[in-house]
């Protein structure tokens, strides 16, 4: 009942771990698959060289979510093969998230992750907290198109493009990615935000500004998925504030084929994937559906 297929990849349930959460090491990814119950896991975004990221505080909790600015910290693609190997012991599809400062970096890292045995590539063109990487590409139709095109030349795996609502017209970006050959769209990444401490009068985050995630961005993410799914033919993966089965169902109704969960781990623990899957199942049963596919895009019709 919960199985879905995404670009030819079979998922036992439609919940995926979102990139950037618990994804730096194979051990963590494996745990999310085995005890967490995720249908697929997305690694932390990997780049060409090791990066320590921004200084702490890298995360600040606010009402309704989190603002974080880890700063694309990662050990670099050369060292990541071992982590992928361990992650794959979780027995679910592993999606390699890739960021870069130029097209060549995206392509080189994606090609290497393919060699490491990931099941798909997700291009991070949504991360808003490092100057000319991530969202720098995702803000522009031309750059988004080029990144996807260059990566598609080098890998045979399905390529997802993860978009940001910080772009002026996210639907136009989604279409540009589809035209360039993207196999799916993930929407959305965290949104630029900040928090200032009243006593010291200073921004709390080391990077001053960060990316807002969690339940407070869900309505924005839902709107993006709805608008994108109406205009593209490739699958859309919903991401942004999903914490319950009801949230996930909303995204399916808006046209998402699967959902990613990140910040929700903070509120419901690593087993949130199991919990949300169970809640999706209950919704389907109570409403007389026999599969997730049956409700995908109902709100669009």
């Amino acid at each position: 009942m919960l199985e879905v297929e995404l670009c030819g990849i079979k998922l036992r349930n439609p919940t995926m771990l979102a990139s950037g959460i618990l994804g730096t090491s194979g051990a963590a990814l494996k745990r999310v698959a085995l005890s967490g119950g995720a249908g697929a896991i997305v690694t932390k975004s990997i780049g060409l060289t090791p990066r320590e990221g921004h200084r702490n505080p890298t995360v600040v909790e606010i009402n309704g979510g989190l603002i974080s600015a880890i700063g694309l910290a990662n050990p670099g693609y050369e060292e990541f093969g071992d982590e992928i190997r361990v992650a794959k012991e979780g027995g679910v599809p592993v999606i390699g998230s890739v960021y870069g400062f130029n097209f060549g970096e995206y392509a080189a890292v994606a090609e290497t992750l393919q060699k490491y045995g990931v099941d798909a590539i997700e291009l991070n063109i949504s991360y808003p907290n490092v100057g000319k990487a991530g969202a720098f590409f995702g803000y522009s139709e031309e750059l988004s198109h080029e990144v996807v095109k260059e990566v598609k030349k080098r890998v045979s795996l399905p390529v997802f493009a993860k978009l940001t609502a910080g772009a002026g017209d996210i639907v136009a970006i989604a279409k540009a990615c589809e035209d360039a050959g993207a196999d799916a769209i993930t929407a959305i990444g965290a949104l630029r935000a900040m928090k200032i401490d009243l006593i010291t009068g200073k921004p709390i985050l080391g990077n001053e500004v960060g990316g807002l995630s969690g339940p407070c961005i869900k309505p924005i993410a839902l709107r993006c998925v709805y608008e994108i799914a109406r205009e593209v033919d490739i699958p859309v993966i919903g991401c942004g504030g999903i914490t319950t089965g009801e949230d996930a169902v909303e995204f399916f109704l808006a046209g998402a084929r699967a959902v990613q969960i990140g910040t929700g781990v903070l509120y419901r623990g690593i087993t949130i994937f199991k919990k949300v899957s169970q809640e999706i199942k209950e919704y389907l049963e109570e409403n007389g559906y026999s599969s997730v596919d049956e409700i995908v895009g109902l709100a669009l019709r």
Binding site: I21, K30, I70, G262, L266
Partner: peptide, 16 residues
């Protein structure tokens, strides 16, 4: 980094 169990920085190998 986060200190609240979401970033994955401090996960121990072998036991997760």
């Amino acid at each position: 980094k986060c200190g609240i169990g979401i970033c994955g920085q401090c996960v121990l190998d072998g036991i997760g």
